[in-house]
């Protein structure tokens, strides 16, 4: 909808659409809570919760933030944001899971473990 040229009928149609999105968001919120109490396995519970949250976020973005009717330049901006966001998450988490073994952290952990065993043995 172009705000400059929108007719009353067009605006009223959009208002109805917003109410539909509101109802969908409420249903998805109930589903989020419901599935959290069903034990699907740790990973599946997390994955499903994030999928539903992404779906809800998309509804808010596409309809309430008007992305469905937005210009291409906004999409370019969002794509750029997503690139940097994914890069940041990737570097931070990648750094955590890519820590090589035999680092100073492992040696400290081994020392703590050894000290703990020694103390335990002398008692």
């Amino acid at each position: 909808m172009d705000p400059q040229t929108a007719t009353i009928e067009e605006i009223n149609r959009h208002v109805k659409l917003y109410l539909g999105v509101f109802a969908a968001l409420l249903v998805l919120t109930a589903v989020t809570v419901g599935v959290a109490y069903i034990d699907l396995g740790h990973g599946a519970n997390i994955g499903l919760a994030l999928v539903i949250a992404t779906l809800k976020a998309s509804l808010v973005g596409f309809f309430f933030m008007h992305l469905k009717w937005e210009r291409r330049s906004v999409y370019g901006l969002i794509l750029l944001t997503f690139f940097f966001f994914a890069g940041m998450i990737g570097l931070i988490l990648g750094g955590y899971w890519d820590t090589p073994t035999g680092t100073v952290h492992d040696r400290v952990a081994i020392e703590i473990h050894t000290t703990h065993d020694d103390t335990g043995g002398s008692e």
Binding site: A53, A57, F64
Partner: peptide, 21 residues
């Protein structure tokens, strides 16, 4: 409104991540 919807959007992720998982 764009800002306010974004604040809503952040909460949509905070709710399951902090309270449910």
């Amino acid at each position: 409104g764009l800002y306010w919807h974004f604040v809503d959007l952040v909460w949509i992720f905070l709710f399951p991540v902090l309270y449910l998982l």
